[in-house]
Design a protein around this nucleic acid. Structure first.
Lengths: 179, 179
DNA sequence: GGCGGCATGTAAGTTGTTACATGATTAA
DNA sequence: TTAATCATGTAACAACTTACATGCCGCC
């Protein structure tokens, strides 16, 4: 089953009705370390979902703002998808490609690349740690936080691994200038 | 600068002349945990590279097999690219999307998803550990292995993080059935 | 009045996958 | 001889990005 955009949208709408703009902001904020979507995918997909009856434009649809709510059919479609086997797993890190061929480039360039990577992921890690703190502070009456915390935990662990690797890589690239 | 396929190909050709088929096999083997390309991208790209004079079809171009070698211009293009800032970093893990919305699905399904993930990455980790052992066994007269080992090390660390997370996630999903 | 953020959308272009067609070689 | 693997390629499609066009709203 392809077309994951569809299900990200439906999933976010289970929490509350939202606009395309809000959906995009949420994906960039919460899912940044394992997912992304552009407006060019979200807006057309919302229209298709509406035509298919999986979402309905409603309530907050005031001046210049279209808010969509998930329908019963939408919930069913999402549930069905959640039970399907996981299909997409793609990781594309240009940095590692450059590292692999780094013998053909000045060491300083490679170091700079890794430093940028380290800084980006240090920021990501900060954000994730703050998310975790916030979530743990909020009471969880209906055991809903568990899964979200597991997702955040995934981000924390991988970003920690990234940072540890980057530290070591920078050190070994800078350090042992062959005698 | 887009069109990374181009530079993956050029990079692999710096080692020795190869065919499109061989390039694909190598990407699937060595780069599986941080890159991928399909034949539909590789073959047309090789033709474009040949027309642009960055590679040359030569030598091993016998019956049904076209082998390409990188040219001086190709090496220059690759070097220039290695110095450009890193642009593409994309991670898309459908598993985490399903985990995020897992409150809407039976726990058994979610556990099964994570188990599949764990098994896939256990295999990846095995492969990477074998790569490292092999590389460390081979003498490295021209200090070429360092960068490759750093890439392998990245894979080892992230896959270890994946596995540790998966273990914990499975345990906490199976374990505490609310009283 | 003008800027920045909010907000929606489209069109064009790029990138990437999949399915298919074709044929050679190798090993059971 | 037949199946698997090696090997190249294309066409259709799907996915995704980017740039652009448009306009509202609030604030300084």
């Amino acid at each position: 089953m392809q077309g994951t955009t569809k299900y990200v949208i439906l999933g976010l709408l289970t929490e509350m009705p939202r606009s395309g703009y809000e959906i995009k902001q949420l994906i960039d904020l919460r899912f940044r370390f394992f997912w992304s979507e552009s407006y060019g995918q979200i807006y057309p997909e919302l229209q298709r979902l509406e035509q298919a009856g999986l979402v309905a434009a409603g309530a907050g649809t005031t001046r210049g703002k279209r808010s969509y709510a998930i329908t019963a059919a939408g919930r069913e479609a999402l549930s069905a998808w959640l039970e399907q086997p996981v299909e997409k797993e793609s990781v594309r890190l240009e940095l590692l490609l450059r590292m692999y061929f780094a013998a053909l480039a000045p060491a300083a360039t490679t170091v700079a690349h890794v430093e940028t990577f380290r800084d980006t992921h240090a920021r990501d890690l900060d954000l994730l740690l703050r998310f975790r703190d916030e979530l743990e502070r909020i009471p969880d009456p209906h055991h809903d936080h568990g899964h979200i915390l597991r997702v955040i935990d995934f981000g924390i662990r991988t970003n920690e691994a990234y940072l540890a690797w980057a530290q070591d890589a920078i050190q070994s690239l800078k350090g042992p200038t062959r005698p």
